[in-house]
Amino acid sequence: MGDLTGDIAQVAGDATEPVHTLALACALAEAGGGLELALEHPWSLYTPQDAAVVASALHATLTSTVNNLRALAAAVRVLGTRGDIDLTGPTELSVDEEAPGMAVDRLETVADDVEQHLAAVLPAIAVLQAAPGAYRPAARVHDNLLALVGELGDGARLHTPEDKHDQGGPEDPCGCHIRIQDGSELYYLDLPDMGWSLLRDTDGTDQPDGSKTWHTSGDLHVREPLAHPGHLAEAVMHAIKNDF
């Protein structure tokens, strides 16, 4: 998560020119739109606590928006002090002959209105944080594979190599994979370095040592090693149904 926010923090720390101000404003707008899209996905949240984190972040965003509206109003007034804008006279695009100074006042009025409702978000965050959830994340990848077999049903079997079974850290691959029989097709679900991957047996190439290699795989678009087994199962069946 730090990779997503690090660049923004660096730009904010070095912000001394309009190009920085506009870049941060655009990043804010883009992030807000991206969150909306993310929340539309049915697996965007696993627990009530996930929802509490998002609500807390939105509360912080609204607080920042209030402060940013006021800071913007102050910055425009600095433009007026420098003589780069006439805050008292109307412009060709002014609505109802409204002067730019009145528009700045509107920004501050909106900030005041939003601020009045900020406190109402806090109880909602507390309720979501305390709400019991049915889902309990697996402690290790191997445990997640076992849970996933249960979600996939009778056609799924966990395969553990005879020569090695190293579970490593909680999110490290354990060396196991799931074999899924769907009609006449056999699939292998594995966790390589880049996220969960689905392989079709008939797409593999037999090697002299008895192993198989694949040049293509089905990307489930799920990266987290300890992703919800229901999420993984749904992604697997969707990939199989749609032929990857």
Score class of each variant (00 low, 15 high):
8 I>N: 08
12 A>M: 07
12 A>E: 09
12 A>S: 12
16 T>A: 12
20 H>S: 08
21 T>I: 10
23 A>D: 09
23 A>N: 05
24 L>K: 13
25 A>D: 08
25 A>N: 05
31 A>D: 04
33 G>F: 12
34 G>F: 08
39 L>Q: 02
42 P>R: 01
43 W>D: 02
48 P>T: 01
49 Q>G: 04
51 A>T: 03
51 A>P: 01
56 S>T: 05
69 L>Q: 08
69 L>C: 09
72 L>K: 04
77 R>Y: 06
80 G>V: 07
80 G>K: 05
90 P>G: 01
91 T>P: 00
92 E>W: 04
92 E>V: 05
93 L>V: 02
98 E>T: 10
107 L>G: 12
108 E>M: 14
108 E>Q: 14
108 E>N: 12
112 D>K: 07
119 A>N: 06
119 A>H: 06
119 A>K: 07
128 L>R: 13
133 G>N: 14
133 G>W: 09
136 R>L: 11
139 A>C: 00
144 N>K: 00
146 L>S: 02
156 A>Y: 12
168 G>V: 02
172 D>S: 11
172 D>H: 10
173 P>W: 07
178 I>A: 04
179 R>Q: 06
180 I>W: 10
184 S>P: 01
186 L>E: 14
198 L>D: 13
206 D>A: 15
209 D>V: 13
210 G>I: 14
212 K>Q: 15
219 D>Q: 03
222 V>R: 00
224 E>N: 06
229 P>G: 10
236 V>M: 10
239 A>G: 07
240 I>E: 04
243 D>V: 06
